[in-house]
Design a protein around this nucleic acid. Structure first.
Length: 376
RNA sequence: CCGAGGGUGGCAGAGUGGUCAAUUGCAACAGACUGUAAAUCUGUCGGGCUUGUCCCUACGGGGGUUCGAAUCCCUCUCCUCGGA
């Protein structure tokens, strides 16, 4: 599959949040439960991350709002001074498919491990995110699985719109009452609120969803419900159906994506924000990204089409072939792993199951992703 | 020397007459992973091909009983423990 790179289409916005100004495009490392697994805030910052992502549902369950309140917010709790975006729990509507029941009022989740039930409503989601001290708050949405009938996607879009309205109202009410003031004077005191566009792979529904959210009005617009199992070719279709409707001055966020080649084309299609578990999760699973020839072309104002293989490759460091490979994982990488250790050592760390392996792999892969975005 | 118990696939360890090429775990090998139920999951793991209710080799070595043995008997050998 051929992907295109056209730097003339890349957007460079500044996004002001209570905890700092963000330069687009940017990638958000995932700290679902208040930690980018294995790493401390300082390390994440040094890798070049501007912002991290936390999750409403997971933090609500653990450690719970009382703890967050006691520690004066998530930033302080996890010792991360930059902005935080929090997802609403909408993705768990999809990922916890078997463990939830959805209605117009909200979602009942059964915690998979304990069976304990939680009722998440649009209001509740915003309330939690406000209590966490989030800088960018996401509305609660319904993310339908793949495959779904068009009828079901229509229902999801309707519900998402309705919930977005409720979230907007609840958020505005709260904001008119409470304004915290620990921030720098030049920065806004209230968090941003983002709407989430659904509509599956249907162009008309995507467009409709975008228009409806636009009517409500948000600080930014996210495209959700992508990469939930549908064939890859649909990504372009969804972007084409959605982006032209959105105002150019507002940030666009492609939720949950993606592979490096997907991020490059999406940035060149006008997407500003990304988050994805791939670099950290696959890192922990022993898959390491390596820069290839064309990677160096990015950012040099050359327009070209490429295949993913030409931009990067990936190795499974646990394989026998790396047992005695004393080269760095990626010779063109200046991360802590590549500057100090060999493939053989990382292979060894994975084989003995030491947690340092997970840390070093996460550091490297995040560096790869953050550098990729930076070069764009 | 005597007594007792044991030797099973790379390792650990089930199995004690047929449904056993042999449970399971570890190791090994391959793959997956996209708003994190994920330091996780899946597959392969004696050999062969005509991929089959197929053939060959295999539960320390040899011999025997039986229609049939990893499983029962004899013998050799090695290991562990106890006693001289």
């Amino acid at each position: 599959m051929l992907y295109s790179y056209d730097p003339s289409l890349i957007r460079h916005l500044q996004l002001s949040t209570p905890h700092g100004v963000l330069q687009t495009p940017f990638f958000m490392p995932i700290a679902t439960r208040g930690v980018v697994k294995g790493l401390v805030g300082e390390e994440i910052k040094n890798l070049g991350a501007q912002i991290v992502l936390g999750n409403t549902y997971h933090l609500w369950l653990k450690p719970g709002l009382e703890v967050i309140k006691g520690t004066k917010g998530l930033h302080n709790f996890m010792n991360w001074s930059g902005p935080i975006l929090t997802d609403s729990g909408g993705f768990q509507v999809f990922s916890l498919g078997k463990f939830r029941q959805i209605s117009d009022k909200g979602v009942v989740f059964s915690e998979p491990a304990s069976g304990q039930k939680y009722f998440l409503t649009p209001q509740k989601s915003i309330e939690i995110q406000l209590k966490l001290g989030s800088d960018i708050i996401m509305v609660l949405d319904e993310c339908p699985p793949w495959p779904s009938s068009k009828k079901d996607v229509i229902t999801a879009v309707k519900r998402t719109t309705k919930w977005a309205e409720i979230c907007r109202k609840y958020f505005d009410n709260k904001m008119s009452v409470v304004v915290e003031t620990p921030y720098r004077a030049s920065l806004p005191r209230r968090p941003l609120l983002f709407g989430i566009i659904q509509g599956g792979v249907h162009s008309d529904l995507r467009q409709k969803s975008a228009e409806e959210l636009l009517r409500i009005g948000f600080d930014g617009y996210a495209i959700g419900g992508v990469a939930v199992g549908e064939p890859r070719k649909y990504l372009n279709k969804v972007l084409k159906a959605t982006l032209p409707t959105l105002p150019i001055e507002k940030p666009r966020y492609l939720m949950g994506l993606g592979r490096p080649e997907e991020i490059i084309t999406a940035v060149c299609s006008g997407i500003d924000m990304f988050d994805c578990v791939i670099p950290t999760r696959e890192g922990r699973h022993g898959r390491l990204f390596i820069r290839e020839k064309k990677y160096a072309w990015l950012g040099k104002k050359k327009k070209f089409d490429f295949r993913s293989k030409e931009i990067y490759s990936a190795i499974n460091i646990g394989r026998e072939e790396y047992k005695k490979d004393f080269r760095p994982v990626d010779p063109h990488c200046d991360c802590y792993l590549c500057q100090n250790f060999s493939r053989a050592y990382l292979h060894h760390l994975f084989k003995i199951g030491d947690t340092l392996a997970l840390r070093l792999a996460s550091i490297h892969n995040l560096k790869f992703y953050l550098d990729l975005i930076k070069s764009l």
